[in-house]
Design a protein around this nucleic acid. Structure first.
Lengths: 157, 157
DNA sequence: GATGGAGCCTGTAGTCGCTACAGGGTCAAG
DNA sequence: CTTGACCCTGTAGCGACTACAGGCTCCATC
């Protein structure tokens, strides 16, 4: 009846996934629990391989496990219009673009920092300076608005 | 003696940090434990504010807490040459650039996926198709090399 | 002086997506 | 019969927080 079945290790090799990760996917309900052999080993069949491949591809594209779960659910209903799939992918793209913008800005700041470093001593290192800017000699009254700590002997009076 | 001291909430407002995060930094040894008031409230003083600002800036630039810890340690020794600081910053920049490259590639793939979507049904959705490619009808013998599962009744034969 | 509510305290558990054990059982080859 | 690769369950750890629960403190107001 069953054509071929394979062990978790074989499935792992076939999908470049760690064995522990496969068990983890099963635990969180992403991969259906397979049949077991007499020795209580997991015996996977074709659909498991396909499903795990799907998951790994989705993860490779940066979808969260929840997004992958949703995409899997959607992919099961072949008749449904794929607007929802499109929506998830677009939302993810937007996220990626947001991260890209953040990282690009970050790269700029880091480059500037490194460029300004004169390789002297810490005392006049621009990098340290940039992290601990000189502008804060006193805690600004504007920011710390409501004062009311003066109890005990630790606080000034 | 002490000029001014402020509560954890005030420090939080002054640095745009959550109260819990400040306590967390103290727990992991990034922020030294402040004096306490009679009522056992944390009473922060100026250096705490400076140190926390430093931490937040470092985090804002994407440095890990360990990197921030190292930068803090270095920044305390004003005489030391700043080569080490430079090294950390450069290593971090390299990481950022690596992530940028990954994300850029990702964005490309996502865009292509979305572009190809014809808004039909799931059955011919390119996005789903791309995730579950048709190329895997049989588990390839090349990948799954060592077969030896046939015990029990779950495995074939 | 009683009360209300904002703020503080400690300690623990949850998040995400794995990863790494510990302590055992199973299987096939030599 | 032993070896060693593989498998099993269950639990704890990572990073960097975040979110409670259950209680205490402080201050203003009545």
């Amino acid at each position: 009846m069953t054509g071929e079945s394979f062990s978790i290790g074989e499935l792992a090799r076939a999908t470049s996934t760690k064995v522990e990760t496969i068990r983890y996917y099963e635990r969180v309900g992403l991969l259906p629990p397979p049949a077991r052999t007499g020795g209580n080993y997991r015996a996977y069949v074709q659909p498991h391989l396909e499903r795990l491949s799907f998951i790994r591809r989705g993860r490779g594209l940066g979808f969260s496990l929840d997004e992958v779960r949703e995409l899997l659910r959607l992919s099961d209903d072949r008749e449904r219009p794929c607007a929802e799939v499109d929506r998830i992918a677009r939302a993810h793209l937007a996220e990626v673009e947001c991260k890209l913008a953040d990282l690009t800005r970050l790269r700029g700041e880091l480059r500037q920092l490194i460029e300004q470093c004169q390789h002297g001593t810490i005392a006049d290192c621009r990098i340290i300076e940039a992290l601990a800017p000189p502008g804060l000699n006193q805690v600004s009254a504007a920011v710390v608005s409501r004062k009311r700590m003066r109890s005990g002997r630790a606080a000034g009076r």
